[in-house]
Design a protein around this nucleic acid. Sequence first.
DNA 1: AATTGTTTCTGAACACGTTCAAAACTACTG
DNA 2: CAGTAGTTTTGAACGTGTTCAGAAACAATT
Lengths: 217, 217
Amino acid sequence: MGKSDETRNKITETALTSFRERGYEQTTIRLIASEAGISVGNAYYYFPTKNHLVQELYLRVQSEHRERVAPIFASTTDLPARLEGALLAGLDSLSPYHDSAPGFLSAAISPTSAVSPFGADAAAPRELAISVFRDAVDGSTNAIPAELRQQLPQLLWLLYMGLALFWVYDNSPGQKRTRRLASRGSKLFGMVLPFARLPFVRGALKEALDIAAEAQS
Amino acid sequence: MGKSDETRNKITETALTSFRERGYEQTTIRLIASEAGISVGNAYYYFPTKNHLVQELYLRVQSEHRERVAPIFASTTDLPARLEGALLAGLDSLSPYHDSAPGFLSAAISPTSAVSPFGADAAAPRELAISVFRDAVDGSTNAIPAELRQQLPQLLWLLYMGLALFWVYDNSPGQKRTRRLASRGSKLFGMVLPFARLPFVRGALKEALDIAAEAQS
DNA sequence: AATTGTTTCTGAACACGTTCAAAACTACTG
DNA sequence: CAGTAGTTTTGAACGTGTTCAGAAACAATT
Protein backbone atom coordinates (compact mmCIF):
# COMPACT_ATOMS: atom_id res chain seq x y z
CA MET A 1 0.00 0.00 0.00
CA GLY A 2 1.56 3.28 -1.14
CA LYS A 3 1.65 6.47 0.81
CA SER A 4 -1.21 7.80 -1.25
CA ASP A 5 -3.58 4.98 -0.37
CA GLU A 6 -2.56 5.30 3.23
CA THR A 7 -3.55 8.95 3.35
CA ARG A 8 -6.78 8.27 1.52
CA ASN A 9 -7.70 5.50 3.94
CA LYS A 10 -6.90 7.61 6.93
CA ILE A 11 -9.24 10.27 5.63
CA THR A 12 -11.98 7.78 4.89
CA GLU A 13 -11.81 6.09 8.27
CA THR A 14 -11.62 9.34 10.17
CA ALA A 15 -14.58 10.70 8.24
CA LEU A 16 -16.75 7.61 8.64
CA THR A 17 -16.05 7.38 12.35
CA SER A 18 -16.90 11.01 12.79
CA PHE A 19 -20.04 10.66 10.68
CA ARG A 20 -21.24 7.95 12.99
CA GLU A 21 -20.28 9.70 16.21
CA ARG A 22 -20.99 13.31 15.38
CA GLY A 23 -23.27 13.25 12.37
CA TYR A 24 -22.95 14.96 9.04
CA GLU A 25 -22.97 18.66 9.83
CA GLN A 26 -20.78 18.38 12.92
CA THR A 27 -18.19 16.55 10.87
CA THR A 28 -16.30 19.43 9.32
CA ILE A 29 -13.52 19.04 6.81
CA ARG A 30 -11.20 20.89 9.16
CA LEU A 31 -12.01 18.40 11.88
CA ILE A 32 -11.40 15.41 9.64
CA ALA A 33 -8.12 16.90 8.46
CA SER A 34 -7.01 17.67 11.97
CA GLU A 35 -7.89 14.22 13.30
CA ALA A 36 -6.29 12.53 10.32
CA GLY A 37 -3.19 14.66 10.80
CA ILE A 38 -3.28 16.25 7.39
CA SER A 39 -4.12 19.63 5.93
CA VAL A 40 -7.50 20.76 4.69
CA GLY A 41 -6.28 21.06 1.13
CA ASN A 42 -4.96 17.54 1.19
CA ALA A 43 -8.38 16.13 1.99
CA TYR A 44 -9.62 17.88 -1.13
CA TYR A 45 -6.84 16.30 -3.13
CA TYR A 46 -8.48 12.94 -2.53
CA PHE A 47 -12.15 13.86 -2.23
CA PRO A 48 -13.43 16.66 -4.42
CA THR A 49 -16.37 17.27 -2.13
CA LYS A 50 -17.64 16.49 1.32
CA ASN A 51 -20.42 14.60 -0.37
CA HIS A 52 -17.92 12.22 -1.88
CA LEU A 53 -17.06 11.15 1.63
CA VAL A 54 -20.70 10.38 2.20
CA GLN A 55 -20.52 8.10 -0.78
CA GLU A 56 -18.02 5.98 1.14
CA LEU A 57 -20.53 5.77 3.95
CA TYR A 58 -23.21 4.79 1.48
CA LEU A 59 -21.06 1.89 0.34
CA ARG A 60 -20.44 0.71 3.88
CA VAL A 61 -24.12 0.76 4.75
CA GLN A 62 -24.89 -1.11 1.59
CA SER A 63 -22.41 -3.87 2.16
CA GLU A 64 -23.73 -4.24 5.69
CA HIS A 65 -27.21 -4.50 4.21
CA ARG A 66 -26.03 -7.34 2.02
CA GLU A 67 -24.48 -9.14 4.97
CA ARG A 68 -27.57 -8.84 7.09
CA VAL A 69 -29.87 -9.95 4.34
CA ALA A 70 -27.99 -13.12 3.38
CA PRO A 71 -29.18 -15.36 6.24
CA ILE A 72 -32.73 -14.18 5.74
CA PHE A 73 -32.67 -15.05 2.07
CA ALA A 74 -31.26 -18.44 3.02
CA SER A 75 -34.15 -19.10 5.36
CA THR A 76 -37.18 -18.66 3.12
CA THR A 77 -38.27 -18.64 -0.49
CA ASP A 78 -41.48 -16.74 0.18
CA LEU A 79 -41.24 -13.38 -1.54
CA PRO A 80 -43.19 -11.31 0.99
CA ALA A 81 -41.07 -12.74 3.79
CA ARG A 82 -37.90 -12.02 1.82
CA LEU A 83 -39.09 -8.52 1.11
CA GLU A 84 -39.85 -7.85 4.75
CA GLY A 85 -36.45 -9.21 5.68
CA ALA A 86 -34.69 -7.06 3.13
CA LEU A 87 -36.52 -3.93 4.26
CA LEU A 88 -35.92 -4.52 7.96
CA ALA A 89 -32.28 -5.43 7.34
CA GLY A 90 -31.88 -2.18 5.44
CA LEU A 91 -33.38 -0.23 8.32
CA ASP A 92 -31.05 -2.03 10.71
CA SER A 93 -28.05 -1.00 8.63
CA LEU A 94 -29.22 2.59 8.60
CA SER A 95 -30.07 2.82 12.27
CA PRO A 96 -26.75 4.16 13.60
CA TYR A 97 -27.21 7.23 11.44
CA HIS A 98 -30.77 8.15 12.23
CA ASP A 99 -29.87 11.06 14.49
CA SER A 100 -28.08 12.87 11.71
CA ALA A 101 -30.12 11.47 8.87
CA PRO A 102 -31.59 14.84 7.92
CA GLY A 103 -28.15 16.20 7.16
CA PHE A 104 -27.29 13.21 5.05
CA LEU A 105 -30.62 13.40 3.29
CA SER A 106 -30.12 17.03 2.30
CA ALA A 107 -26.69 16.20 1.00
CA ALA A 108 -27.84 13.14 -0.89
CA ILE A 109 -31.12 14.20 -2.39
CA SER A 110 -29.98 16.82 -4.87
CA PRO A 111 -29.51 15.52 -8.40
CA THR A 112 -26.36 17.60 -8.65
CA SER A 113 -24.91 15.78 -5.68
CA ALA A 114 -22.51 12.95 -6.26
CA VAL A 115 -24.39 10.76 -3.84
CA SER A 116 -27.91 11.14 -5.11
CA PRO A 117 -29.35 7.63 -5.28
CA PHE A 118 -31.20 8.61 -8.44
CA GLY A 119 -28.42 10.51 -10.16
CA ALA A 120 -26.04 9.32 -12.84
CA ASP A 121 -22.95 9.54 -10.64
CA ALA A 122 -24.20 6.82 -8.35
CA ALA A 123 -25.33 4.38 -11.02
CA ALA A 124 -22.97 1.65 -9.84
CA PRO A 125 -23.90 1.72 -6.14
CA ARG A 126 -27.54 1.99 -7.14
CA GLU A 127 -27.30 -1.17 -9.23
CA LEU A 128 -25.76 -2.85 -6.22
CA ALA A 129 -28.61 -1.72 -4.02
CA ILE A 130 -31.18 -2.88 -6.53
CA SER A 131 -29.46 -6.24 -6.74
CA VAL A 132 -30.49 -6.95 -3.16
CA PHE A 133 -34.08 -6.84 -4.29
CA ARG A 134 -33.26 -8.76 -7.43
CA ASP A 135 -31.94 -11.51 -5.19
CA ALA A 136 -35.08 -11.30 -3.13
CA VAL A 137 -37.20 -11.85 -6.23
CA ASP A 138 -34.98 -14.35 -8.01
CA GLY A 139 -34.69 -16.58 -4.97
CA SER A 140 -38.42 -16.69 -4.41
CA THR A 141 -40.73 -19.50 -5.43
CA ASN A 142 -43.89 -17.43 -5.73
CA ALA A 143 -45.73 -17.40 -9.01
CA ILE A 144 -45.22 -14.00 -10.59
CA PRO A 145 -46.10 -12.87 -14.10
CA ALA A 146 -42.97 -12.54 -16.19
CA GLU A 147 -43.30 -8.81 -16.95
CA LEU A 148 -43.76 -8.08 -13.28
CA ARG A 149 -40.92 -10.31 -12.20
CA GLN A 150 -38.62 -8.46 -14.53
CA GLN A 151 -39.40 -4.99 -13.20
CA LEU A 152 -40.10 -5.90 -9.63
CA PRO A 153 -36.56 -5.44 -8.27
CA GLN A 154 -36.41 -1.81 -9.31
CA LEU A 155 -39.91 -1.15 -8.07
CA LEU A 156 -39.14 -2.71 -4.70
CA TRP A 157 -35.95 -0.68 -4.46
CA LEU A 158 -37.95 2.46 -5.15
CA LEU A 159 -40.34 1.42 -2.42
CA TYR A 160 -37.36 0.97 -0.15
CA MET A 161 -36.17 4.49 -0.97
CA GLY A 162 -39.59 5.75 0.02
CA LEU A 163 -39.43 3.76 3.21
CA ALA A 164 -36.00 5.22 3.95
CA LEU A 165 -37.41 8.70 3.46
CA PHE A 166 -40.21 7.89 5.86
CA TRP A 167 -37.60 6.57 8.28
CA VAL A 168 -35.71 9.85 8.24
CA TYR A 169 -38.84 11.62 9.42
CA ASP A 170 -39.81 8.92 11.88
CA ASN A 171 -39.00 9.93 15.43
CA SER A 172 -40.87 7.16 17.18
CA PRO A 173 -38.57 5.27 19.58
CA GLY A 174 -36.31 2.98 17.62
CA GLN A 175 -38.16 4.07 14.48
CA LYS A 176 -40.70 1.45 15.39
CA ARG A 177 -43.29 3.03 13.17
CA THR A 178 -41.18 2.59 10.06
CA ARG A 179 -40.51 -1.03 10.92
CA ARG A 180 -44.18 -1.66 11.40
CA LEU A 181 -44.93 -0.01 8.08
CA ALA A 182 -42.37 -2.28 6.42
CA SER A 183 -43.84 -5.41 8.00
CA ARG A 184 -47.46 -4.64 7.34
CA GLY A 185 -46.65 -3.44 3.84
CA SER A 186 -44.81 -6.64 3.03
CA LYS A 187 -47.69 -8.71 4.31
CA LEU A 188 -50.17 -6.71 2.27
CA PHE A 189 -47.95 -7.27 -0.73
CA GLY A 190 -48.24 -10.99 -0.03
CA MET A 191 -52.02 -10.70 0.14
CA VAL A 192 -52.21 -8.89 -3.16
CA LEU A 193 -49.56 -10.67 -5.18
CA PRO A 194 -51.67 -13.73 -6.12
CA PHE A 195 -54.21 -11.46 -7.79
CA ALA A 196 -51.56 -10.32 -10.24
CA ARG A 197 -52.25 -13.48 -12.20
CA LEU A 198 -55.96 -12.77 -12.58
CA PRO A 199 -56.72 -12.02 -16.24
CA PHE A 200 -58.63 -8.80 -15.71
CA VAL A 201 -55.99 -7.51 -13.30
CA ARG A 202 -53.19 -8.18 -15.73
CA GLY A 203 -54.43 -5.49 -18.07
CA ALA A 204 -54.06 -2.76 -15.48
CA LEU A 205 -50.83 -4.29 -14.26
CA LYS A 206 -49.42 -4.30 -17.75
CA GLU A 207 -50.26 -0.65 -18.13
CA ALA A 208 -48.73 0.20 -14.76
CA LEU A 209 -45.52 -1.59 -15.64
CA ASP A 210 -45.46 0.11 -19.00
CA ILE A 211 -45.76 3.51 -17.35
CA ALA A 212 -42.99 2.61 -14.94
CA ALA A 213 -40.80 1.49 -17.83
CA GLU A 214 -41.40 4.69 -19.75
CA ALA A 215 -40.69 6.80 -16.70
CA GLN A 216 -37.22 5.35 -16.37
CA SER A 217 -34.96 7.38 -18.57
CA MET B 1 -48.49 49.78 6.38
CA GLY B 2 -45.75 50.46 8.90
CA LYS B 3 -42.11 50.80 8.18
CA SER B 4 -41.57 47.30 9.42
CA ASP B 5 -43.96 45.68 6.97
CA GLU B 6 -42.46 47.77 4.22
CA THR B 7 -39.00 46.42 4.88
CA ARG B 8 -40.27 42.90 5.18
CA ASN B 9 -42.09 43.14 1.88
CA LYS B 10 -39.08 44.60 0.14
CA ILE B 11 -37.03 41.66 1.32
CA THR B 12 -39.65 39.14 0.26
CA GLU B 13 -40.12 40.60 -3.19
CA THR B 14 -36.43 40.99 -3.82
CA ALA B 15 -35.81 37.43 -2.72
CA LEU B 16 -38.61 35.89 -4.76
CA THR B 17 -37.60 37.78 -7.88
CA SER B 18 -34.03 36.65 -7.45
CA PHE B 19 -35.09 33.08 -6.75
CA ARG B 20 -36.89 33.03 -10.06
CA GLU B 21 -34.17 34.74 -12.05
CA ARG B 22 -31.05 33.37 -10.44
CA GLY B 23 -32.14 30.27 -8.57
CA TYR B 24 -31.62 29.30 -4.97
CA GLU B 25 -27.88 29.07 -4.53
CA GLN B 26 -27.07 32.15 -6.60
CA THR B 27 -29.47 34.15 -4.47
CA THR B 28 -27.24 35.11 -1.57
CA ILE B 29 -28.39 36.95 1.50
CA ARG B 30 -25.85 39.66 0.76
CA LEU B 31 -27.33 40.08 -2.70
CA ILE B 32 -30.86 40.29 -1.40
CA ALA B 33 -29.82 42.80 1.23
CA SER B 34 -27.94 44.90 -1.28
CA GLU B 35 -30.78 44.91 -3.82
CA ALA B 36 -33.33 45.65 -1.14
CA GLY B 37 -31.14 48.46 0.14
CA ILE B 38 -30.75 47.10 3.63
CA SER B 39 -28.05 45.44 5.68
CA VAL B 40 -27.42 41.73 5.96
CA GLY B 41 -28.29 41.69 9.62
CA ASN B 42 -31.59 43.37 8.94
CA ALA B 43 -32.67 40.59 6.64
CA TYR B 44 -32.05 38.22 9.53
CA TYR B 45 -34.18 40.38 11.77
CA TYR B 46 -37.18 39.43 9.64
CA PHE B 47 -36.25 35.97 8.42
CA PRO B 48 -34.33 33.73 10.78
CA THR B 49 -33.04 31.63 7.91
CA LYS B 50 -32.64 31.64 4.17
CA ASN B 51 -35.03 28.71 4.15
CA HIS B 52 -37.74 30.87 5.62
CA LEU B 53 -37.58 32.94 2.46
CA VAL B 54 -38.18 29.79 0.48
CA GLN B 55 -41.33 29.30 2.49
CA GLU B 56 -42.65 32.52 0.97
CA LEU B 57 -41.94 31.08 -2.45
CA TYR B 58 -43.73 27.91 -1.46
CA LEU B 59 -46.82 29.92 -0.62
CA ARG B 60 -46.74 31.76 -3.94
CA VAL B 61 -46.43 28.60 -5.94
CA GLN B 62 -49.26 27.09 -3.98
CA SER B 63 -51.64 29.97 -4.52
CA GLU B 64 -50.81 29.88 -8.20
CA HIS B 65 -51.59 26.18 -8.16
CA ARG B 66 -54.99 26.93 -6.71
CA GLU B 67 -55.67 29.56 -9.35
CA ARG B 68 -54.71 27.29 -12.19
CA VAL B 69 -56.72 24.39 -10.89
CA ALA B 70 -59.99 26.26 -10.39
CA PRO B 71 -61.16 26.32 -14.04
CA ILE B 72 -60.25 22.67 -14.43
CA PHE B 73 -62.31 21.69 -11.43
CA ALA B 74 -65.17 23.72 -12.85
CA SER B 75 -65.02 21.84 -16.13
CA THR B 76 -65.41 18.22 -15.03
CA THR B 77 -66.61 16.05 -12.19
CA ASP B 78 -64.66 13.01 -13.28
CA LEU B 79 -62.06 12.27 -10.61
CA PRO B 80 -59.28 10.99 -12.87
CA ALA B 81 -59.65 14.04 -15.08
CA ARG B 82 -59.62 16.31 -12.04
CA LEU B 83 -56.57 14.52 -10.70
CA GLU B 84 -54.71 14.87 -13.98
CA GLY B 85 -55.65 18.55 -14.10
CA ALA B 86 -54.45 19.10 -10.56
CA LEU B 87 -51.15 17.36 -11.19
CA LEU B 88 -50.45 19.17 -14.44
CA ALA B 89 -51.47 22.51 -12.96
CA GLY B 90 -49.05 21.86 -10.13
CA LEU B 91 -46.26 21.15 -12.56
CA ASP B 92 -47.12 24.31 -14.46
CA SER B 93 -46.83 26.34 -11.28
CA LEU B 94 -43.47 24.79 -10.52
CA SER B 95 -42.01 25.10 -13.98
CA PRO B 96 -40.27 28.49 -13.62
CA TYR B 97 -38.12 26.99 -10.90
CA HIS B 98 -37.02 23.77 -12.52
CA ASP B 99 -33.51 24.98 -13.30
CA SER B 100 -32.73 25.55 -9.68
CA ALA B 101 -35.04 22.91 -8.29
CA PRO B 102 -32.18 20.81 -6.88
CA GLY B 103 -31.14 23.65 -4.63
CA PHE B 104 -34.66 24.17 -3.40
CA LEU B 105 -35.10 20.46 -2.91
CA SER B 106 -32.01 20.17 -0.73
CA ALA B 107 -33.19 23.10 1.32
CA ALA B 108 -36.72 21.81 1.67
CA ILE B 109 -36.28 18.10 2.22
CA SER B 110 -34.63 18.07 5.61
CA PRO B 111 -37.03 17.55 8.52
CA THR B 112 -35.09 20.16 10.45
CA SER B 113 -35.80 22.69 7.73
CA ALA B 114 -38.62 25.12 8.21
CA VAL B 115 -39.92 24.40 4.74
CA SER B 116 -40.03 20.65 4.77
CA PRO B 117 -43.42 19.67 3.34
CA PHE B 118 -43.57 16.80 5.82
CA GLY B 119 -42.31 18.64 8.88
CA ALA B 120 -44.30 20.15 11.69
CA ASP B 121 -43.32 23.73 10.87
CA ALA B 122 -45.14 23.63 7.56
CA ALA B 123 -48.34 22.02 8.78
CA ALA B 124 -50.49 24.95 7.69
CA PRO B 125 -49.20 25.25 4.11
CA ARG B 126 -49.32 21.46 3.83
CA GLU B 127 -52.98 21.43 4.76
CA LEU B 128 -53.54 24.03 2.11
CA ALA B 129 -51.77 21.91 -0.46
CA ILE B 130 -53.74 18.85 0.52
CA SER B 131 -56.95 20.82 0.24
CA VAL B 132 -56.41 21.07 -3.52
CA PHE B 133 -56.74 17.33 -3.69
CA ARG B 134 -59.58 17.34 -1.23
CA ASP B 135 -61.42 19.64 -3.63
CA ALA B 136 -60.55 17.30 -6.46
CA VAL B 137 -62.14 14.40 -4.61
CA ASP B 138 -65.09 16.24 -3.07
CA GLY B 139 -66.16 17.75 -6.35
CA SER B 140 -66.11 14.44 -8.17
CA THR B 141 -69.13 12.29 -8.92
CA ASN B 142 -67.33 8.96 -9.07
CA ALA B 143 -68.42 6.20 -6.78
CA ILE B 144 -65.75 5.77 -4.13
CA PRO B 145 -65.87 3.69 -0.97
CA ALA B 146 -66.24 5.93 2.05
CA GLU B 147 -62.98 4.91 3.77
CA LEU B 148 -61.05 5.55 0.60
CA ARG B 149 -62.74 8.84 -0.10
CA GLN B 150 -61.79 10.03 3.34
CA GLN B 151 -58.07 9.30 3.00
CA LEU B 152 -57.73 9.86 -0.71
CA PRO B 153 -56.80 13.56 -0.57
CA GLN B 154 -53.74 12.93 1.55
CA LEU B 155 -52.73 9.95 -0.54
CA LEU B 156 -53.04 11.92 -3.75
CA TRP B 157 -51.03 14.75 -2.25
CA LEU B 158 -48.33 12.24 -1.32
CA LEU B 159 -48.41 11.00 -4.88
CA TYR B 160 -48.03 14.57 -6.02
CA MET B 161 -44.98 14.99 -3.79
CA GLY B 162 -43.50 11.93 -5.43
CA LEU B 163 -44.30 13.34 -8.83
CA ALA B 164 -42.62 16.60 -7.89
CA LEU B 165 -39.54 14.69 -6.83
CA PHE B 166 -39.53 12.92 -10.16
CA TRP B 167 -39.92 16.30 -11.84
CA VAL B 168 -36.83 17.65 -10.14
CA TYR B 169 -34.80 14.86 -11.69
CA ASP B 170 -36.52 15.07 -15.06
CA ASN B 171 -34.36 16.83 -17.59
CA SER B 172 -36.41 15.97 -20.65
CA PRO B 173 -37.36 19.12 -22.60
CA GLY B 174 -40.15 20.92 -20.79
CA GLN B 175 -40.19 18.05 -18.29
CA LYS B 176 -42.37 16.26 -20.79
CA ARG B 177 -41.68 12.92 -19.21
CA THR B 178 -43.11 14.00 -15.86
CA ARG B 179 -46.22 15.35 -17.55
CA ARG B 180 -46.70 12.13 -19.41
CA LEU B 181 -46.29 10.18 -16.21
CA ALA B 182 -48.94 12.34 -14.58
CA SER B 183 -51.37 11.84 -17.46
CA ARG B 184 -50.91 8.13 -17.87
CA GLY B 185 -50.95 7.64 -14.11
CA SER B 186 -54.21 9.51 -13.76
CA LYS B 187 -55.78 7.47 -16.52
CA LEU B 188 -54.61 4.25 -14.94
CA PHE B 189 -56.13 5.47 -11.70
CA GLY B 190 -59.38 5.87 -13.59
CA MET B 191 -59.11 2.33 -14.93
CA VAL B 192 -58.52 0.89 -11.50
CA LEU B 193 -60.85 2.97 -9.36
CA PRO B 194 -64.07 1.08 -10.20
CA PHE B 195 -62.53 -2.13 -8.89
CA ALA B 196 -62.25 -0.56 -5.46
CA ARG B 197 -65.89 -1.41 -4.93
CA LEU B 198 -65.41 -5.11 -5.61
CA PRO B 199 -65.93 -7.06 -2.40
CA PHE B 200 -62.73 -9.10 -2.51
CA VAL B 201 -60.67 -6.01 -3.36
CA ARG B 202 -62.09 -4.08 -0.46
CA GLY B 203 -60.36 -6.33 2.04
CA ALA B 204 -56.92 -5.49 0.73
CA LEU B 205 -57.89 -1.87 0.26
CA LYS B 206 -59.10 -1.64 3.83
CA GLU B 207 -55.79 -3.01 5.04
CA ALA B 208 -53.83 -0.62 2.83
CA LEU B 209 -55.78 2.35 4.14
CA ASP B 210 -55.33 1.13 7.67
CA ILE B 211 -51.57 0.95 7.16
CA ALA B 212 -51.55 4.43 5.69
CA ALA B 213 -53.56 5.72 8.61
CA GLU B 214 -51.22 4.15 11.14
CA ALA B 215 -48.18 5.52 9.33
CA GLN B 216 -49.38 9.07 9.76
CA SER B 217 -48.23 10.26 13.13
C1' DA C 1 -38.23 68.80 26.22
C1' DA C 2 -36.04 65.20 28.45
C1' DT C 3 -35.88 60.50 29.72
C1' DT C 4 -36.67 55.86 29.22
C1' DG C 5 -37.80 51.65 26.81
C1' DT C 6 -38.65 49.24 22.51
C1' DT C 7 -38.19 48.32 17.81
C1' DT C 8 -35.39 48.39 13.86
C1' DC C 9 -31.05 48.37 11.74
C1' DT C 10 -25.94 48.00 11.05
C1' DG C 11 -21.58 45.88 9.87
C1' DA C 12 -17.91 43.35 11.70
C1' DA C 13 -17.01 38.71 12.95
C1' DC C 14 -17.39 33.53 12.94
C1' DA C 15 -17.16 28.82 11.05
C1' DC C 16 -18.04 26.52 7.11
C1' DG C 17 -17.00 24.20 2.27
C1' DT C 18 -14.04 24.99 -1.29
C1' DT C 19 -10.02 26.75 -4.30
C1' DC C 20 -5.39 27.47 -5.58
C1' DA C 21 -0.59 28.87 -6.07
C1' DA C 22 3.25 27.30 -4.35
C1' DA C 23 6.09 24.25 -1.48
C1' DA C 24 7.73 19.60 -0.35
C1' DC C 25 8.41 15.18 -1.51
C1' DT C 26 9.28 11.09 -4.70
C1' DA C 27 10.98 8.62 -8.69
C1' DC C 28 13.38 8.43 -12.49
C1' DT C 29 17.03 9.99 -16.06
C1' DG C 30 21.43 11.58 -17.87
C1' DC D 1 25.07 13.04 -7.91
C1' DA D 2 22.20 16.79 -10.26
C1' DG D 3 18.28 17.64 -12.60
C1' DT D 4 13.72 17.03 -14.10
C1' DA D 5 9.01 15.59 -14.17
C1' DG D 6 5.36 14.05 -11.56
C1' DT D 7 2.80 13.45 -7.26
C1' DT D 8 1.41 14.87 -2.83
C1' DT D 9 0.83 18.36 0.67
C1' DT D 10 0.28 22.86 2.60
C1' DG D 11 -2.11 26.93 4.38
C1' DA D 12 -3.84 31.25 3.14
C1' DA D 13 -7.78 33.10 0.82
C1' DC D 14 -12.65 33.41 -1.00
C1' DG D 15 -17.64 33.61 -0.65
C1' DT D 16 -21.19 31.66 1.91
C1' DG D 17 -25.08 31.54 5.83
C1' DT D 18 -25.47 33.11 10.30
C1' DT D 19 -24.65 35.69 14.84
C1' DC D 20 -24.25 39.53 17.80
C1' DA D 21 -23.02 43.72 20.31
C1' DG D 22 -24.24 47.90 19.81
C1' DA D 23 -26.02 52.12 17.08
C1' DA D 24 -30.01 54.51 15.35
C1' DA D 25 -34.79 55.50 15.01
C1' DC D 26 -39.02 55.60 17.11
C1' DA D 27 -42.70 55.63 20.85
C1' DA D 28 -44.39 56.58 25.29
C1' DT D 29 -44.16 58.83 29.64
C1' DT D 30 -42.91 62.26 32.71
